[in-house]
């Protein structure tokens, strides 16, 4: 078991990141994992350890991990771990953490990251701050900042013990390559446990589209959209602008969109360059989900719609007509 020390006198050192794999064929990293490496390099002077799960298919990725700032890569090499087994992942991460005794463990607040991080935190007796949007160091103390309830406050949180753990909101930090030919050490690690789930069937759902968290421009539709045909307009506008279509909770409930397109606290938190909200009044949860967007432009028939509080501009007008016109002139 990892020993716990007072933060000031801890001998823990190093920063460990679980680097999530989003595709196996061809193999690629979850983009937000590279964002975390970049941020880690920026704020942290010590060694940075990456951890990856899978078999030999991962080899082409080593270089990328180093180029974004990892010094050492732990490759938990096991064919069975190509599939996601949260219990086995967690046990492996824990045994690696016990070996290197890091002062910080970070991972991305993706669906899987949010599942693994708390399990690991509990097994290490570590504190965990979820979904951070700012990270900085104060000596050896990691300052973790995240929106508090409703997004009207930003709370800065610190851990009471080592390691200090956080998950990071995807899309918050820009990915930044330090060098194309950076190198580092790869250590093969063996998982000795047997906490494998019995996966009876698994259907990989291929999306030819990106995740909405990766889009630079989001055309987002809300309850003010009355006609389902408007979705096609929005898709067309998004295509012309090189963006994607997202939505508010109301349209997911209507069954017009899958949950993966939902922006907001119960959906995805997004940070696009431009967020164009059509007919979204702006619930507390929705506003929290777009706080880190670079620019927010809303179109709504109600000048008092709460989304105005978080928008650069609120265009008062008919969302569907304006979208139709926009589609025409683009």
């Amino acid at each position: 078991m990892l020993q716990q020390y007072d933060l000031g006198t801890s001998t823990a050192d190093g920063l460990m990141v679980w680097l999530e794999i989003s595709e196996r064929d061809p193999v690629s990293f979850e983009p937000s994992s590279m964002e975390i490496l970049s941020k880690a390099r920026e704020i942290y002077d010590g060694r940075i350890f990456g951890v990856v799960f899978g078999d030999t298919e991962l080899k082409p990725l080593y270089k990328e991990a180093f180029s974004y700032g990892a010094d050492t890569l732990y490759h938990v090499k096991d064919k069975r771990l190509i599939d996601f087994h949260p219990e086995a992942y967690c046990e492996s991460l824990r045994s690696i953490a016990e070996r290197i005794n890091p002062s910080i463990i970070l991972m991305s607040a993706t669906l899987r990251g949010r599942e693994v991080a708390p399990r690991l935190a509990a097994s290490l007796g570590a504190g965990l701050t979820a979904d951070c949007t700012e990270l900085s160091m104060d000596g050896s103390v990691l300052q973790m900042t995240r929106p508090a309830f409703g997004g009207d406050l930003m709370a800065t949180i610190t851990s009471e013990s080592m390691p200090q753990m956080a998950t990071v909101r995807p899309g918050t930090f820009p990915p930044n390559k330090i060098s194309d030919d950076a190198t580092g050490t790869v250590i093969y690690w063996q998982y000795k446990g047997d906490s494998f789930k019995t996966i009876i069937s698994s259907k990989r759902k291929y999306h030819d589209e990106k995740d909405i968290t990766e889009a630079d421009i989001l055309i987002s539709l809300g309850n003010g959209i009355k006609s389902k045909d408007t979705i096609r307009l929005a898709e067309s506008v998004a295509k012309k602008l090189g963006g994607m279509v997202s939505c508010s909770r109301a349209l997911v409930e209507k069954g017009w969109f899958p949950q993966s397109r939902q922006v907001g606290q119960s959906g995805r938190n997004v940070s696009p360059e431009i967020y164009l909200a059509f007919g979204i009044s702006g619930s507390v949860q929705h506003k929290a989900g777009i706080m880190t967007a670079r620019r927010v432009i809303a179109v709504n028939s109600d000048p008092d719609a709460p989304i105005r509080e978080i928008a650069d501009e609120l265009i008062v007008g008919d969302a569907e007509n304006i979208l139709r016109e926009l589609d025409k002139i683009l």
């Binding site: 927010v296 000048p303 509080e309 650069d312 501009e313 609120l314 265009i315 008062v316 007008g317 008919d318």
Partner: peptide, 8 residues
């Protein structure tokens, strides 16, 4: 963000 109102 300033929440500028524009007539649409």
């Amino acid at each position: 963000r300033r929440g500028i109102l524009t007539d649409g």
